[in-house]
Nucleic acid binder design. Structure first.
Lengths: 191, 191
DNA sequence: TTAATTACCTACAGTCTATAGGCAATCGCG
DNA sequence: CGCGATTGCCTATAGACTGTAGGTAATTAA
């Protein structure tokens, strides 16, 4: 009997591939078992359950995304950094839609703490420092940027821009310009 | 034998309630059958399948959301309209998380055309006209607003703001201020 | 080389979607 | 009012999924 060589790491990586190919919903224990030519029950020797495996896939995605953002941000600040950071996100989501979906999972508090989400948040914070916001306003700026990126990418992935001109790519650029504008003219709170 | 009185409309409305109570994933044919005290197979006499039922639920949500936005927008323009429109979305998502989730479903082209999504888009467009953007820029403004709203609401719903100060409510206000600022200082395209 | 561990197995229980075919309650027509 | 057509719900069944229990064979370590 030749062993299939299933490990948790290989399962997570297969889950990520499968998610990118066929969507997160296609990632099932059964599908992974088929991919490794093994019975579903055998998969449970390596993971505690599907949920935990998907959490691991989310962590993988956040790690890869943080790495790419770090690369793209190197040596940049201000508007350049803003665009690089945002593009790293959109590019990753387009190249790895299933991983991106996984990264949207609501993680437990400790899973979130152990993830690279904090690293990504620090990048965003560093970008804000180039705009001269107060420390208190930086977090709002981070949230504006995060909302714009996540919202745009989600709508684009959902085909929301498909049936109206102009192209999503063009709007993406203009949306980032708008975010840059608001950061450079950061409004004081209204009452 | 007393009849349970299952109809498609009642199923859709039960699906919406169930989604709000327990999440969209909890909406199953079996769960609905239990709620109507009927066998799962009987549900299929009224719907073609789960997918179509969830699509109907999405249409319901979009319709309700458009109605609320219309109410809240009445008589407003400019910044007031922007805030009313955005708040209508966030309030609806918070009050009806399952319906909101359903509304994020990728709809078929004709389902999308038959939905109230177009009505909502026209509201957004009307708001832009208060900012004096060119017709070509209005669509980018609509997409900025849509991205910010959807992104913020998604992150908030996913608990992304839970473990850092300040409150999501405060940032929401500041994010909308920022969007308003960028619309009032709408940047011309870079290169 | 044998004992412990690990990788995978079969078998099973319980959940879900969906279809086929049947009986009975109700509706509509003469 | 009565009878046929329709419709509402049924049982039975198939196939996919998650997850558990308990067993056997392959590998590793003493």
């Amino acid at each position: 009997m030749v062993r299939a060589g299933v490990t948790e790491a290989r399962l997570v990586s297969a889950a990520a591939e499968l998610a990118d190919e066929a969507g997160l919903v296609a990632v099932t224990v059964s599908a992974l078992a088929r991919r490794f030519d093994v019975r579903p029950a055998s998969v449970y020797s390596h993971i505690t359950g599907l949920d935990e495996l998907l959490d691991q896939t989310a962590l993988l995605a956040l790690h890869e995304l943080a790495d790419r953002a770090a690369d793209d941000l190197a040596g940049k600040s201000g508007r350049d950094a803003l665009f690089a950071f945002a593009n790293a996100h959109r590019d990753y989501a387009r190249a790895h839609p299933g991983r991106w979906q996984a990264a949207q999972r609501r993680l437990s508090a400790d899973a979130a703490a152990a993830s690279d989400g904090g690293r990504i948040a620090r990048f965003a914070r560093a970008i804000m420092s180039g705009y001269g916001l107060t420390a208190a306003d930086e977090v709002h700026g981070v949230r504006l940027l995060g909302s714009a990126i996540n919202g745009f990418v989600a709508i684009e992935a959902g085909g929301g821009f498909d049936h109206s001109a102009p192209s999503a790519a063009e709007s993406w650029h203009r949306v980032l310009d708008a975010v840059d504008t608001s950061l450079r003219n950061w409004p004081t709170p209204t009452e």
